[in-house]
Design a protein around this nucleic acid. Structure first.
Lengths: 331, 331
DNA sequence: CCATGCATCTTAATTATTTAAGAACCTTTA
DNA sequence: TAAAGGTTCTTAAATAATTAAGATGCATGG
């Protein structure tokens, strides 16, 4: 009342630009009139900054809540965002891009999680806004990754250390197919840009060094990391003849499901079959037997990526260490 | 090039307003120039619609990812949002409201989950935008709830059906205190608007009907639904003298932790101690023994609330049915 | 041949805010 | 007392879109 919009703006944003008295009065009157600070859309339009950070997920939005690893990552992300007073907008690269209605115009920056398709990647790059990739790499773009090959090698080496082995691999996203299936040599010959292929390399190298090997038809492809898919694969693998006595799984969700299926089939873990995981989700400690796995600090990964995004111009490609956690599911 | 901004806008939003030929050309040229659809902030400012839905959480943002129940709810929410081409903005009522920077001005509507504080509630109401409450009620506002008293009554009645009992309750958010503690009568005399109090009423009624009762000092208050807090409470309760042989827990997370603690203390479930949960999270099926619990369809709850929000002017106060799921942790 | 109608495209107002530049006013000092 | 300087507030442009209303051109029909 009786003051310009500029003064109101200053009352909210630049207290030094007006007298304390007037500022008090404006804030009080604004509250009375039901005005509680600037409209985010208008502020964003004018300033070009929204205080919103977009997280783009390779899988469906739903997945970000259901998958324990995505979950932990997002925990880390939101921890930092809350600290810095930023907001979190969840986007999925899954939706038809024509339907996205330009949502990527809002955020000030992006975290891209997982192997996102080229079209989405290009679209985000063209915004010119800062971005950090997680579990995904590209030249000239900052990223946070783990050494998947090494992690896989470490745990497979442990599992295959003594004795002779019939090995099966329960793999995640090894080919571009949306159902559980075994692989063929042809599948493996086609290049496929997923971290799972690095894990497979680690498994293979460990197997070779321990004088054993596994054929493509002992490798299962699981398209989405959930118990439903994992159960199908685990049941097939554990009833295969000859029955494997080592099951190398590319995620803890898969491995925990495999332990359960093994028990249902009357198999003792690790006596009849050794089972290994990958990720180090909280449940892996509490299973029966507890799961031997490769821990990646997913929460930390989320925190680090978010800090890198907010703190600036880093083009760094970070590779975090994994930690081998040997528990009851191997011996 | 050579066309007005209005025509460009129409090319993206109202294809019937221009010739197909020109539209094609505009879309093609726009793509070449790196323009991929309208800026969300500008569009929102002009249209007053952002296609963004805000979910306001009573607890910290992090909690929305770490807690299985919040998780399932958000799964349901995001399922519907993806279907309808809406975006999801996560907000916490936890953050200092002065720091929120007016983020509630962006969304077209809100889902408020849990018992949110009066100030936040008022702030959202003042936006005049549609809202749906979940696990929370208020006159004149649409909401989705379950009958907590009845659910609690049902499972407690089952647990207390035969024999004599020493009962302990592991309760969630029973008072306004941020550490695990036992209650006093004074605590219970103070009114506290939380769904947990309804659950407590259900437990109490079932106990009375079965000729047993429990004192306030057999009721534990757990401020946040996580394993850390649950473990403290479970350990205290299970080492109390006389040791309880029935443990009524107000969440599955608490109950699953209690089962684990009981085992660590050398107690057999359900022989030495009967343990019940509440919620029906996926893990409750897979524990050892599997948990008897009250299932609430959290995913459905999220879906329903979101549909109510998007589909219109409903002021309905929905109360969903719960389902008793009797498994190995009771007999 | 002019009026009518229709399809197609443009003009200009509007949205809520930020911010540089300028105006108004008061105080100080030579 | 007039210039200088500082504080406090206002003016007006800019941000990127949407949309009602208007303009333009073209075909049709009386």
């Amino acid at each position: 009342m009786g003051v310009s919009t500029a003064t109101i703006s200053n009352a909210f944003n630049r207290p030094d630009q007006l007298s304390a008295k007037l500022r008090e009065r404006i804030l009080r009157d604004a509250a009375k009139l039901g005005y509680h600070g600037p409209n985010l859309a208008a502020r964003t339009l004018r300033r070009g900054e929204s205080d919103v950070i977009g997280v783009i997920l390779s899988d469906s939005l739903t997945y970000s809540f259901s998958d324990p690893v995505a979950n932990q990552l997002l925990q880390g992300v939101s921890d930092v965002l809350v600290e810095r007073n930023k907001h979190l907008l969840l986007l999925s690269s899954h939706v038809d891009s024509s339907e996205q209605r330009g949502a990527e115009s809002l955020p000030d920056g992006f975290i891209l999680y997982g192997t996102i398709d080229q079209a989405t990647f290009e679209r985000v790059k063209r915004t010119g806004k800062p971005m950090v990739l997680v579990d995904f790499e590209s030249d000239e773009v900052a990223s946070v990754n783990i050494d998947n090959e090494k992690g896989a090698y470490k745990i497979a080496s442990h599992a295959l250390a003594k004795g002779t082995h019939e090995v099966a691999v329960l793999g995640l996203k090894l080919i571009d197919f949306d159902r559980v299936c075994r692989l063929t040599q042809a599948d493996l010959d086609i290049e496929y840009k997923e971290i799972s292929r690095s894990r497979l390399k680690g498994f293979t190298r460990a197997a070779e060094e321990n004088g054993c090997s596994f054929k493509p038809d002992s490798i299962w492809h699981i398209p989405i990391n959930n118990t439903t898919n994992a159960e199908i694969a685990a049941r097939e693998a554990l009833t295969k003849i000859p029955r494997p006595n080592v099951l190398l799984c590319m995620s803890d969700v898969i491995a925990l499901t495999a332990i359960r299926v093994a028990r249902e089939l009357g198999l003792s873990v690790p006596k009849d079959v050794t089972i290994t995981g990958f990720d180090g989700i909280p449940e892996s400690e509490r299973s029966n037997p507890p799961l031997s796995t490769v821990c990646q600090q997913s929460i930390e990964k989320g925190k680090l990526a978010t800090k890198m995004l907010l703190d600036g111009e880093s083009r760094e490609q970070v590779v975090l260490e994994t930690k081998l956690e040997l528990r009851g599911s191997t011996n």
